[in-house]
Design a protein around this nucleic acid. Structure first.
Length: 490
RNA sequence: CGGGGUGUAGCGUAGUCCGGUCAUCGCGCAUGGUUUGGGACCAUGAGGUCGCAGGUUCGAAUCCUGCCACCCCGACCA
């Protein structure tokens, strides 16, 4: 564990992959492109879920669950939606197996062909809007604010643990509203929820923005997003929130009677974040010694390691450690006291460091005499000796400091790697150094496409908070009203 | 789906060019003992269809053919 681990500078993608596996977050499975999320990795995901779920409930949403399978015909109803997902769908065609005559095992029973094939959901808009048709008649039924936690499948050519897998876990919110304004408001509200989560829980600064037409969700009128910058200088889309207009309402005939007694199609949104956030979290903070977790998402926030020579000493340490643990737990801190006799302290130090546990407390016989403990923080690797008497409060503060420090560090990194450029030459040069690039663009899909082909950079978003500034497109020299964010992306 | 690479014990590997005590070493695992303030040490032991299937040969991890899986780089995507 931790040995023979490449540094980020040596090989970033290898560093990432080894980190995920060696920190026990996930592993590749027997199924191509699908991963097994291991208990430690899943515990982080559960913390993400718990925080997000509360935010969804607090903003008026309810959870529900829709089927994994979607009748093929549903998919054809919204033209751009089909086009967007057709190339990456898994399809169920049969419902029965039988023993092969040659004894080679089981085979698909050709007599068990489904009359209508089922698509395994790559996203649930179609089944949900089909269902909403029966739920919505009047303006009194609106807004309808639903979220579901689910798995989805997108048959990807190339996969990477957490960042892109054929099957992944996510949440998808699907809401219906009486007016366009209300739906847009909802779209932005949920983008803010994601932003708040990314920055305050993940300690990861994000840029809020709108996607260009070519990067928009299939079937959306507008796709809002949060974009984060990873340590290798590549951008990562961490969450999306879509204003779907009346596209799905029209495709699935979801009408309501408004206060004036007139029929109208409802206005829709959808929004989601996925286990990809795990990848973002890992790449935002971790270092060459392993995982670094922000306290708010760490399954174990504090680990206590005893140092002893014999059972007598251990017993004395156990008593003190149990008391410290209990006090910390009272403050809502998750503590692990690792007094296993099967591993030495040094081994444990390395283990928990690699797994990103924010704070480690070591207690030995010398500490018992002095009424102290040794406290080590993962983010800075600093160690200090603290008195046991006021330890709990200090740990509470330390965890807050670590959370803040990780955010500030990530923010500084992003600021240091965000550049404004005004010429195409400068653009290409900065692009190779990595980071976000703020540049003028003439607003056409052709130019965007050309830049992408020539440099592999995409427009990550048109920032929501950016000021108008007239300038010239870096590629064509045509007039531009504001800068957009370019980057190479995951 | 195109280009490149790799498959030998749970993991990482030597050996493959040049076929013949070659199945090597390290980590890990098990047992016993000594240890314990930064990944302990000694001893003993268990564990392998050398990716799979054919073929060549007296003899194949090694040569030939086919297949499969995984990784990296592209195109596509959250």
């Amino acid at each position: 564990m931790g040995k023979d681990f490449p540094t980020r500078a040596e090989n970033y993608s290898q560093w990432y992959q080894d980190l995920v596996i060696k920190a026990d977050l996930a592993e590749n499975s027997a199924v191509r492109g699908c991963m097994v999320i291991k208990p430690y990795g899943y515990a982080i995901w559960e913390k993400m879920q718990a925080i997000l779920d509360k935010k969804f409930k607090d903003t008026g949403h309810s959870n529900a669950y829709f089927p994994l399978f979607i009748p093929k015909s549903f998919f054809s109803k919204e033209a751009s939606h089909v086009e967007g997902f057709a190339k990456e769908c898994a399809i169920v065609t049969h419902y029965r197996l039988r023993n092969a005559k040659d004894g080679s095992g089981v085979e698909v029973d050709p007599d068990a062909k489904l009359e209508e094939e089922l698509i395994i959901r790559p996203t649930s808009e179609t089944i949900i809007w089909h269902t909403y048709r029966g739920w919505i008649q009047s303006y009194r039924d609106l807004p309808l604010l639903i979220n579901q936690w689910a798995n989805v499948v997108r048959w990807e050519m190339r996969t990477r643990l957490f960042l892109r897998t054929a099957e992944f876990l996510w949440q998808e919110g699907h809401t219906a509203h009486a007016t366009s304004e209300e739906a847009i408001e909802e779209t932005k509200r949920m983008l803010d929820v994601y932003t708040d989560f990314a920055e305050n829980s993940m300690a990861m600064p994000v840029l809020k923005g709108v996607k260009t037409a070519s990067e928009r969700f299939a079937g959306a009128l507008d796709t809002y997003c949060i974009e984060a910058l990873m340590q290798d200088g590549k951008a990562l889309q961490a969450g999306t929130s879509h204003f779907l207009g009346q596209n799905f309402a029209k495709a699935f005939d979801v009408k309501f009677t408004n206060k004036e007694g007139k029929q109208d199609f409802v206005w829709a949104t959808s929004w989601g974040v996925s286990t990809r956030l795990m990848g973002a979290l890992i790449m935002a903070h971790s270092d060459d010694e392993g995982l670094v977790l922000p306290p708010k998402l760490a399954p174990i926030q504090v680990v206590i390691v005893p140092i002893y020579k014999n059972e007598e000493q251990l017993n004395a340490l156990n008593a003190v450690a149990d008391k410290i643990s209990a006090e910390l737990r009272e403050k809502g801190i998750s503590v692990k006291y690792d007094n296993r006799d099967t591993h030495k302290p040094g081994w444990k130090f390395a283990e928990y460091e690699f797994k990103g546990v924010p704070v480690r407390i070591a207690i030995g016989p010398r500490d018992l005499e002095n009424g102290t403990v040794e406290v080590a923080r993962r983010d800075t690797k600093e160690k200090s000796v603290m008195q046991i008497t006021d330890l709990t409060l200090k740990i509470v503060h330390l965890l807050d400091h670590i959370q803040d420090n990780l955010y500030r560090k990530a923010l500084t990194f992003r600021d240091d790697n965000t550049h404004r450029v005004d010429t195409y030459e400068e653009f290409k040069k900065k692009l190779d150094e990595g980071g976000f690039i703020l540049a003028h663009w003439d607003g056409t899909a052709e130019t965007e496409q050309k830049i992408k082909e020539e440099t592999k950079a995409t427009i990550r978003c048109i920032p929501l908070n950016s000021k108008k500034e007239s300038g010239k497109c870096i590629k064509t020299g045509n007039p531009s009203e504001m800068r957009v964010v370019f980057a190479r992306a995951y």
